[in-house]
Simulated assay, not measured.
Amino acid sequence: MGIVGLGAYLPGPAVSNESVGKATGADVEWIRDRIGIEARHHAAPGESTSDLAAHAARKALRDAPVEPDLLVLATVTSDRSVPATACYVQDRLGLSGAPALDVNAACSGFVYALTTAAGMVRAGVARHPLVIGADVFTRCVDPADRRTAPLFGDGAGAVQLAPVPDGYGILATELWADGSKAHFATIPHTGGWFEMDGRGVTGTVLEMGPKILSSALDKAGVRLSELNRLVIHQANPRLVRKVGDFVGLEKHVVPDYGRITGNIAAASIPVTMSLAHRERPFQDGDVIALLAVGAGMTAGAVVLRWHEPSA
């Protein structure tokens, strides 16, 4: 089972550091130097998670010569508590009858969703899953909070899966969670803004990210030196580079698009994949790893070998 279609959607024009600085009182140079983010995108009023997800899905489906028979959506910003936002997306895409469900694992959500879809294929539920990560996380963040508002953006990314030749596609996955660290990043159920213990989150990323990646690589029988690309959740550029440096990978192996997207939660991995493929296309046989750590605390990694049909 491998990726045969990629799509990304970033809403509206980019929101500059100058604009965020005016709202939060944060110094523009501080945002750029301390966080490393230069711009992010905000959904328009009335633009929902399902809107963003449908846009990204349509782009992925343009690449894919198959019709999805399962839709798995990773999000923490569902349109409504009930039903699953995936059902709204399914309807907009005209996929009536295809199973549709949401997965909530925060910034690790896309990796969890991809693993869920792959498991459903093995269980015989589907052959052509569509997996989406989408969030309008800026609506969960106090726009006047200089600690969090500059970090986040909105967006959606999608991948279409289908059978690929043996030796290609998803080689291994690894998931993890530790609920004792749940207080590190939360959104109160009764209302209120996103709250984060920055040191706790950073410490967990640096501790668990490399461990989860190493475990997934071991399962796949792949050495770290064989990676052509490591797509890390773009929490912020400084943290992405720290993880890349910690595992000893050169900058060209670790895509950095968080500087222009901000942290887009569950959308981060598929959007980064899509942008990386657009700028420097993956080649047939490339080994790509996906790595994310998110609220929960949760973490996940996927190792895959890229199949290019025309190769």
Rank of each mutant, 00 (worst) to 15 (best):
A299N: 03
R241A: 15
D166E: 15
T138K: 11
H55I: 10
V243F: 06
A57D: 11
L217M: 08
A39P: 09
G258I: 00
P68Q: 05
L171K: 09
A158Y: 00
V136E: 07
T190Q: 15
P237Y: 09
W193H: 14
G21Y: 12
G179V: 04
D142W: 13
G244N: 02
S48F: 06
E195N: 13
A54N: 06
T115K: 02
P99N: 11
G203H: 09
T202Y: 12
V159E: 02
R62Q: 15
D51E: 07
V287Q: 03
S214M: 06
L101S: 12
G7I: 12
V4I: 15
V287F: 04
E174W: 03
S214E: 15
R199D: 13
G21D: 10
W30R: 00
H183M: 12
G203P: 08
A311S: 14
N263M: 04
D197F: 00
T116R: 09
A267K: 03
T261F: 06
V131Q: 07
G7K: 13
V131S: 08
A84Y: 10
I269R: 09
D218C: 12
V103N: 10
R305T: 02
R80P: 04
A84R: 04
D256E: 15
R199A: 13
R32I: 12
A301C: 04
L61C: 13
Y9Q: 08
Q90K: 12
G46N: 05
P281I: 01
S225C: 08
R80I: 03
M273D: 07
I187E: 00
G109V: 04
H42A: 11
V231D: 08
R229L: 06
A53C: 10
E195G: 12
L304W: 00
S310G: 10
I35H: 07
S108N: 10
W30E: 02
E174Q: 15
A266N: 01
H41F: 03
W193L: 07
A144I: 11
M120E: 10
A117I: 01
S180T: 14
H128S: 00
V293E: 00
A177M: 14
S96E: 15
Y9T: 11
A126Q: 00
P68M: 07
D27M: 06
V205M: 04
